[in-house]
Design a binder for these strands. Structure first.
Length: 227
DNA sequence: AACGCTATCAACCGCTCTCGC
DNA sequence: AGCGAGAGCGGTTGATAGCGT
């Protein structure tokens, strides 16, 4: 029999400190990117994806470890309400936190907390959902319905973001797609009875401090992240 | 002390998107 | 326009630490 071409077998499992060191040194000298070649060039027997993940989630400078502050918890809850399971977007609003960390935190701490505050009937509905193969995380409220839609194809997602979402944000003279969510044209920010507003309000409040210019403000324990 | 259960979180997997050719 | 490679994202899994009995 002819020898089959054996694909390089990448190492799996937890990263050792020496592996971290190798990857860190490699990225510091060669820069990010080309993850597929990192394993062969650095000598790490890890897949490109694995290297990328390790760098992004743990080795990158300015990564914030440790327990979430109350502000961060609050923000995650609010942003999740606003954005759904779009962890990278949520993490982008939390200086030093990664999408994986936010996702884990939500799944272990906050998701549980929110479900605990649900009614008995809601909990029963949850059980049924869990039993169905296509079960999705429970969502409550009109915005949450939107978040459920996010789980679908990106095309649908785009549609969702376009309509009615973005239109709604535009009505505040804001555009959700903008990285900085300030009212356009220095327009005054109006409140009304919409339940969306309180969420948006605190979101805006964070934006005002959290991403002002150099990102130097750190409300109560929030670490500033320099570019 | 030993065992079982639960909670937590690092890492993997599969899919989609983006970009260059 | 179509294709392939690389990058990114979200869901899920698995190891293990912690706790209760």
């Amino acid at each position: 029999m002819e020898k089959k071409e054996v694909k390089p077998r990448f190492k799996k499992g937890l990263w050792k400190p020496e592996e971290d060191l190798i990857l860190k040194k490699y990225v510091e000298t060669h820069g990010e990117g080309n993850w597929a070649t990192v394993s062969e060039k650095s000598g790490l027997m890890r897949g490109g994806k694995s290297c990328r993940l390790r760098w992004k989630n743990y080795l990158r400078p300015n990564i914030k470890r440790g327990t979430m502050s109350d502000e961060e918890k609050d923000l995650i809850i609010r942003l999740h309400k606003l954005l759904g399971n779009r962890w990278s977007l949520i993490a982008g609003r939390l200086p030093g936190r990664t999408d994986n960390e936010v996702k884990n935190y939500w799944n272990t701490h906050l998701n549980k907390k929110s479900s605990r505050s649900k009614t008995k009937t809601d909990t029963m509905k949850d059980e049924k959902r869990r039993q169905s193969p296509n079960s999705k995380p429970l969502s409550s409220g009109s915005l949450e319905n939107t978040s459920g839609e996010f789980d679908g194809k990106k095309e649908e997602e785009k549609t969702q973001l376009t309509n009615p979402w973005i239109e709604e944000t535009k009505s505040f003279n804001c555009d959700i797609r903008s990285p900085v969510l300030f009212p356009a044209n220095d327009a005054p920010f109006f409140y009304d009875d919409d339940p969306f507003i309180p969420i948006w309000d605190s979101f805006m409040l964070f934006e005002e401090y959290g991403s002002s210019g150099e990102g130097t403000y750190s409300p109560q324990g929030m670490q500033p992240v320099l570019p």
